[in-house]
Structures are given as structure tokens and as C-alpha cells.
């Protein structure tokens, strides 16, 4: 009896572990190549907000406030410059067609088109939105990665 249960457990584990089918591969959340720069930007804005607040409650002298603010703005500007450089490098604005991500090799690469000002279009169902959304408001599929 014990032997039967043991065999069943062993077979179940092996089947579960090795039986990965193509459709079991996870669809990775689209990752922006700018994620780390956005992160940096967020950190600087966060710092600026804190700085403003501390200045307003009177923890900082005028001089400290101004010089730190200037430093932060400089840093921010250099991050923005880096973003632009990166954009130019990978041809985000339609110059070079992007390459499919490695993890997505199993699926067909999504067509990428670039046109600003039109709005954001869901690649799955085609709904249009005024602002950038992480997920489509109509069909709920992720749409951060692609817009028309």
C-alpha cells in the first residue's frame, strides 16, 4: 500500500516538474528598457518633493534649499539626456525595428509602430485611450509595451 502511494507521489512530482508545455511558458510582463532610468527619475523627483517639504516646514535654510535643488535639477537633466541618448541608440521612434525579447522567442514578436500625439491604442482589442495605461481598460491585457 505504502509502496503504491510512494510510486504515485514520485510519478506525480516528476510529471509535474518535467511536463512543461509550450502554453505553460509565462508571458513576461513587458519591461521597459528605460525602467532603470525611470526609477532614477522617480528617485530624484522624490528627493525634490522631500526637499520642498523640509524647506517649507523650516528644517532647511534658504541657502541649503537652493543649492540642493539646483544639484537635483542638474541630475534630473542628465537623466533626461541619458533617456534621449538611449532612445536614439535603440531607435525607439521608428528608426530601427526593435528586436524581440529573448524570453518571448517562443511567441511572434509584436509589431511596433511609433506615432505620438494620436493616443494609446491597445494592441489586443484596439481600444484607444488618451493617457498611457499599464493595462487596457477594455480587455485588461497589458498594453504598456505597445501603442500606436
Amino acid at each position: 500500500m505504502i509502496i503504491v502511494i510512494a510510486c504515485i507521489i514520485a510519478i506525480a512530482v516528476i510529471a509535474f516538474v518535467l511536463g512543461v508545455r509550450g502554453k505553460d511558458l509565462p508571458q513576461p510582463e513587458p519591461e521597459s528598457p528605460f525602467a532603470h532610468l525611470d526609477e532614477k527619475k522617480a528617485a530624484i523627483y522624490d528627493n525634490l518633493r522631500d526637499l520642498q517639504f523640509e524647506y517649507r516646514v523650516g528644517k532647511l535654510s534658504e541657502q541649503d534649499y537652493q543649492s540642493t535643488k539646483r544639484d537635483l535639477q542638474k541630475e534630473l537633466a542628465s537623466v533626461l539626456a541619458e533617456v534621449d541618448r538611449l532612445k536614439g541608440q535603440i531607435g525607439v521612434n521608428g528608426a530601427v525595428p526593435p528586436v524581440a525579447a529573448v524570453a518571448q522567442a517562443a511567441r511572434p514578436a509584436q509589431p511596433a509602430a511609433a506615432a505620438k500625439e494620436i493616443g494609446f491604442v491597445c494592441p489586443s482589442c484596439g481600444s484607444k485611450f488618451d493617457q498611457e495605461l499599464k493595462f487596457c481598460g477594455e480587455c485588461g491585457k497589458p498594453m504598456k509595451a505597445a501603442k500606436a
Binding site: Y45, L48, Q52, R70, S78
Partner: peptide, 24 residues
């Protein structure tokens, strides 16, 4: 002065100002 003095970076000034106004 509390300005961005580097000419290469000056072009980002407007955007920064705009973003700053949106803080909080």
C-alpha cells in the same frame, strides 16, 4: 544661481519645471 547652467542640459529645463509643478 538656482539654474541649470550646462547648455547641453538647458533644453530639459522646461520639462523639469513642468514636472515640478505637478509634484504633490
Amino acid at each position: 544661481p538656482a539654474e541649470i547652467d550646462d547648455p547641453d542640459l538647458a533644453k530639459y529645463k522646461d520639462q523639469i519645471e513642468k514636472d515640478l509643478a505637478k509634484l504633490e
